[in-house]
Design a protein around this nucleic acid. Structure first.
Lengths: 141, 141
DNA sequence: ACTCCAATGTTATATCATAACATCTCTTGC
DNA sequence: GCAAGAGATGTTATGATATAACATTGGAGT
């Protein structure tokens, strides 16, 4: 979809920041981490994010209002349906896709004559490591 | 999940507003429509929405930052995975669920030992009516 | 009538995102 | 080399979404 341009300096900095982070970051969190690199205003972050979202190098998690580096930057070009599992406790994100789910949804869309443009598929919960750490009783919240 | 309480006045007003609307509404759009009923501050809307979301009478569409009345208020108690198809053109929302998709996702979760709490599944695109209205060439954007 | 508790009202503020316009920095053609 | 154009960047201001903190009200049960 996008003609694979080299990243600009700002885009590279934002992408590095997201790649280095264990968890998704909000635009303002990214801004804070890039103050020393000369970032002063949210727009600098949002503009870089827009470009990175276009090329599929970054995803936005609507349910968190935050951004993550794509785990598989080569494979999908913003076209495939990607799902995200987000651990509420540690914040880590698992990215996966399932062609059977895709087919199944495509069947619904065909039946309703609906043309899909974008998908948002996000699951919140607790990952295995966090549940073990918190013990069998589970966390209060 | 929630002990089925009667709605308060504010909750009833917010729910009526959403039910009467053809499209999802932002909290501030709801506020504007309820000025004549004495609503003055966003918090009045957000508090009512919180209660309605708890009981499953309303859904939040993260991709739109907006809210819709649930199409099937009786069936699911916030537990089932519900998907939303949203027409970019007319704003209408189709709500559906598919047990095969649910099973398929459950299989992934079991394999990864991930415990699901909440799901966000939203698809944006164009509905049949809007595509017909705009002609076979489709819209510019 | 009194007490308690939930709902409500009100003000202020936090957080997320974009509009509008000035400036810089390459590249390209000359 | 240098002017012109295009894209990227910087900067200020503002819009849009959401919540914190605390005062007030109103009804259920006694």
């Amino acid at each position: 979809m996008s003609p694979k341009r080299a990243l600009t300096r700002n885009q590279a900095l934002v992408l590095q920041t997201l790649t280095a982070s264990e968890e998704p970051l909000s635009a303002y969190a990214i801004l804070d981490r890039l103050r020393d690199d000369g970032f002063r205003a949210p727009l600098q972050v949002y503009r870089a994010l827009d470009a990175l979202l276009q090329t599929g190098l970054v995803h936005r998690l609507d349910s968190l209002k935050a951004f993550v580096a794509c785990a598989h930057p080569h494979e999908h070009a913003d076209e495939a349906m990607v799902a995200f599992a987000i651990c509420e406790s540690c914040g880590r994100v698992w990215e996966f896709s399932d062609s059977k789910i895709e087919d199944r949804f495509a069947a619904w869309a065909a039946a309703e004559d609906f043309v899909t443009k974008t998908t948002t598929f996000e699951i919140s919960g607790l990952c295995a490591a966090c549940r073990k750490a918190q013990g069998p009783a589970g966390p209060g919240v």
